[in-house]
């Protein structure tokens, strides 16, 4: 029990005394997972919307692929990325191995199917008559998509939360492609792992507490937006 309190105390001390290493790790975590979630949105939301609203050959197959991707084990994502980017791999010349970029790529691979899958489910929930209606009012194709995306924005926000939660808490892939290098590719999760390996349990707990605080903070913020929007959305009816 005592070690837990000590860890929490240590976490507070580390945060408020501005420990440089902790801040570096914190910012790197936010930078990596933030950019990964951003690119995953760019990729996942359009794919989800397009796949959800259109009829095309192999639609069921592609949806099944996306759904499988939602449960893609991070280690698998890590391994796939490694095979491409290590020195002897196809993209070896880019020298991406053990860089934050590699971690972003692996996380995009994990998060974009999650975002695509939830978005897809969300747009399929929208009344198909709405699409007909908007079309009959003379909207062009992109206007239709835009209106339907707006209609599905709350679930899309949930999708982003799920994606972010999935990658910021992930260890397997980032440790494989990032190498857990101190000051370069060490994020909160891998820092906690390293501290356990080195026997510094209070530091490990401190990193976990910070990680929990961030995920809670981000989710709380997004929930606020979602709930506020939700009320306005209901009011419109």
């Amino acid at each position: 029990m005592e070690i837990i309190w000590q860890g929490i105390k240590q976490a507070i001390i580390l945060i408020f005394t501005g420990n440089r290493e902790v801040y570096e790790i914190l910012f790197l975590t936010l930078r990596v997972s933030g950019s990964a979630v951003f690119f995953s949105m760019l990729l996942g939301i359009p794919v989800g919307v397009l796949a959800g609203l259109n009829k095309f050959p192999l639609k069921k197959f592609i949806i099944a692929v996306i759904n499988t991707g939602m449960g893609l084990p991070p280690v698998a994502a890590g391994l796939i990325v490694i095979l491409f980017i290590w020195r002897s791999g196809m993209l070896g010349f880019l020298k991406l191995m053990y860089t934050p970029t590699a971690m972003v790529i692996a996380q995009v691979l994990i998060a974009s199917p999650i975002i695509a899958g939830i978005t897809l489910a969300a747009v399929q929930q929208i009344d198909p008559k709405l699409k007909q209606q908007v079309l009959s009012l003379g909207a062009n194709r992109f206007q239709v998509y835009w209106i339907l995306i707006r209609e599905a924005r709350l679930p899309a926000l949930a999708a982003v939360m799920a994606g972010f939660g999935g990658i910021i808490s992930e260890v397997g892939a980032v440790i494989m492609v990032g190498g857990n290098i101190k000051g370069e590719t060490r994020v909160l999760t891998t820092a906690a792992v390293q501290m356990v390996r080195m026997g510094n349990f209070d530091m490990a707990i401190a990193f976990v507490v910070i990680l929990l605080a961030i995920t809670f903070g981000v989710n709380f913020l997004l929930t606020l937006i979602q709930q506020k929007e939700g009320i306005g959305w209901i009011r419109r009816f």
Binding site: S35, L96, P100, T101, V104, I105, V108
Partner: peptide
């Protein structure tokens, strides 16, 4: 395009 942007942006920033 997303993949190209991701890789190139970060590749250049780290190069």
């Amino acid at each position: 395009s997303t993949f190209i942007i991701t890789t190139s942006v970060f590749a250049f920033s780290c190069k």
